[in-house]
Design a binder for these strands. Structure first.
Lengths: 138, 138
DNA sequence: ACTTTCCTTGGTGTTAACTCCATAGTTTAT
DNA sequence: ATAAACTATGGAGTTAACACCAAGGAAAGT
């Protein structure tokens, strides 16, 4: 599969795919006789994983770390390291999810009590003692 | 409250606070006779909201949009617009949460079936027909 | 009174993650 | 057979969201 179709398949640009390969987010892609990239299943798998992890908010740097380890097949324990990276990232993701859920609640609360808040804002009914209370839920 | 204490209060830098004010993430802060910023409750509220929304992954641009509307107090219906923005952002947040939960599941699955996947990767047991299946959960 | 610590503005620097460009070779369609 | 559409590389440009710095005042501690 050529680069254009691979890019379309994952809704990325060809530049992004070349960039990912260049920096090591995905392993080198094999080429045909004219030097054109030819994406195979394993390449597509890598792209799929990369895209998902990026959507989850993981940095390019983390992905490079992961992919680099994935290619160091000679040393043992590499698979454990990779698993470890995934686990670490899962942990981070869980934290982020908790945070986001909290902000979600905050938003809902703020929307529901909007008019009330506005009134307080305008009347200057608050000082630095109840700033926390203002945002407290329930 | 001076800028340093305000920054410490929210675990931000003074540079960031000035930046937020400069670009319009928070409304202009009032000054004392020497031109120093003096943060009041409403300012602190704004910072609190801004920080939370940033943590939720909302862009500076979105926050500027919100704060800009918030300051157009002369036109009517502004409060409805603000509520609308909050609702829109809530919606976005919910979508992002769903996405992140999916990636979370993907990660968990990937961790659990890691060894199996590695084996398949190595044996080249896959073609483009089962790339989707490879990542399918359950 | 003076040293330290804070504040101001205006501007430049930084990092991440792309994105675009120029130049040149290749494949495909008419 | 030639124009259109693809590909390659190397390098420059872009955007977001700050972080840092210099020069010059102001405030607070001793």
């Amino acid at each position: 599969m050529n680069i254009k179709r691979a890019a379309e398949m994952f809704d990325l640009t060809v530049d992004t795919l070349r960039y990912y390969e260049r920096v090591g987010v995905i392993p080198p892609v094999s080429r045909n006789k004219s030097g054109y990239r030819d994406y195979g299943t394993s390449d597509l798998n890598w792209i799929y994983l990369a895209k998902n992890l990026r959507n989850a908010g993981l940095s390019i740097e983390s992905l490079i770390e992961f992919a680099t380890l994935a290619q160091l097949r000679e040393s043992q324990n590499v698979e454990d390291s990779q698993k470890q990276i995934l686990s670490d990232q899962l942990e981070e993701l869980e934290e982020k999810l908790i945070e986001m859920n909290q902000v979600r609640d905050l938003l809902i609360y703020k929307i529901n009590t909007y008019d009330e808040h506005i009134a307080k804002f305008k009347s200057g009914e608050m000082d630095s003692n109840n700033i926390e209370k203002l945002w407290e839920r329930k």
